[in-house]
Simulated assay, not measured.
Amino acid sequence: MDDIAGVVHRPDGRPQGVVALTHGAGGSREAPLLQAICEEWARRGWVAVRYNLPYRRRRPKGPPPRSAAVADLAGIVEAVAAVRTLADGPVIAGGHSYGGRLTSMATSEGLTLDLLTLFSYPLHSPGKPERARTEHLPNISVPTVFTHGTADPFGSIDELRPAAALIPAPTTIVEVTGARHDLASKKIDVPRAAVDAALELLG
């Protein structure tokens, strides 16, 4: 996984499938949320990989430049291809905020997955609901789980519901009461709830 700057979480026994997750703008594969989610997937019997997007591989800190999106989209396709080699079974991909949004864009452009899992999907910049980032959602054809805080300034639950409905495939919204964009919660085990929802949607 060195070629995609990924860290692999392996389960005990034969894997049931593979999961590839990436970070938000300004974050990295070391984000506590990604670590916890990947550990949860491994406990459930899946190989889970958390990886850095190309812009993060180029510099250790800071948000992605506006010019980074094309290379980052290519990096997601590359990462999913690499993760596929680790085990047979379903392939799940997604990420937090920027990383999740770009993974959803890659999926809308033909990246083949069995399920998309999005954490704190950034529907719009804080205070700018008129600039919704939803134009590609109707082109996503795979089941999708949104895990979202009820106090997220990048989009409310009421805004998220009609956005999720644009996807012509089954969707689930995991509401994290009181959580903001980082999905920190003392009341809800966010990784467990997200993985439960994904497994249920996979059937």
Rank of each mutant, 00 (worst) to 15 (best):
R161C: 08
A164K: 03
P153W: 11
E135M: 04
P168A: 12
S141A: 14
S141T: 10
A163M: 00
E135K: 11
T134N: 11
Y121K: 05
V142N: 10
P153C: 11
P168E: 09
P126H: 05
A132G: 13
R133I: 05
I167W: 03
A165I: 00
A164F: 03
A163D: 05
E130K: 08
A151Q: 12
T147D: 02
T144E: 06
V142R: 07
F154Y: 14
P122Q: 10
H148I: 01
G127R: 08
P168S: 12
R131Q: 14
D152G: 07
G149S: 06
A151G: 09
P129Q: 15
L166H: 02
T134C: 08
H136E: 12
T150W: 02
P153G: 11
G149I: 06
A151K: 15
P138W: 06
G155W: 04
A132E: 15
P143H: 08
T134M: 02
R133E: 02
I157K: 08
H148Y: 11
R161W: 14
G149L: 06
I157L: 15
L137P: 00
L160H: 04
S125Y: 15
E159M: 10
L160Y: 11
R133F: 03
R131A: 13
V145N: 11
S120E: 09
R131G: 02
H124S: 09
H136L: 02
A163C: 10
A164W: 09
P168I: 01
R131T: 04
N139A: 15
F154T: 03
G127S: 01
I140T: 03
F154S: 13
A151R: 13
N139Q: 14
H148D: 09
T144R: 08
I157H: 13
I157E: 15
L166R: 15
I167D: 04
A163K: 01
L123M: 10
Y121C: 00
K128E: 14
A165H: 13
S141C: 10
L137S: 01
A132S: 14
S125Q: 12
I167S: 03
L160W: 06
P138C: 07
S156G: 15
T150N: 09
D158R: 08
A163G: 09
V142L: 05
E159T: 06
F146S: 10
H136W: 00
D152R: 07
A151D: 15
N139S: 12
A163T: 03
H136D: 03
S156T: 15
R161D: 12
T144F: 06
P122T: 01
D158M: 02
V142D: 06
L166M: 13
S120Q: 01
I140Q: 05
T144V: 05
H124K: 03
H124N: 05
S156E: 03
E135R: 14
E135H: 13
G149C: 10
L166K: 14
I167V: 10
R161N: 06
V145G: 10
S141D: 12
E159R: 08
P122I: 01
A163N: 12
P143Q: 08
D152A: 06
P162G: 11
V142W: 04
Y121V: 01
S141M: 04
V142Q: 09
P126Q: 09
L137T: 01
H124T: 09
D158K: 11
P129V: 02
E135C: 06
A163L: 03
D158Y: 07
V145D: 10
P168Y: 11
P126W: 07
G155C: 04
G149W: 00
L160K: 08
R133H: 10
I140L: 01
T144A: 04
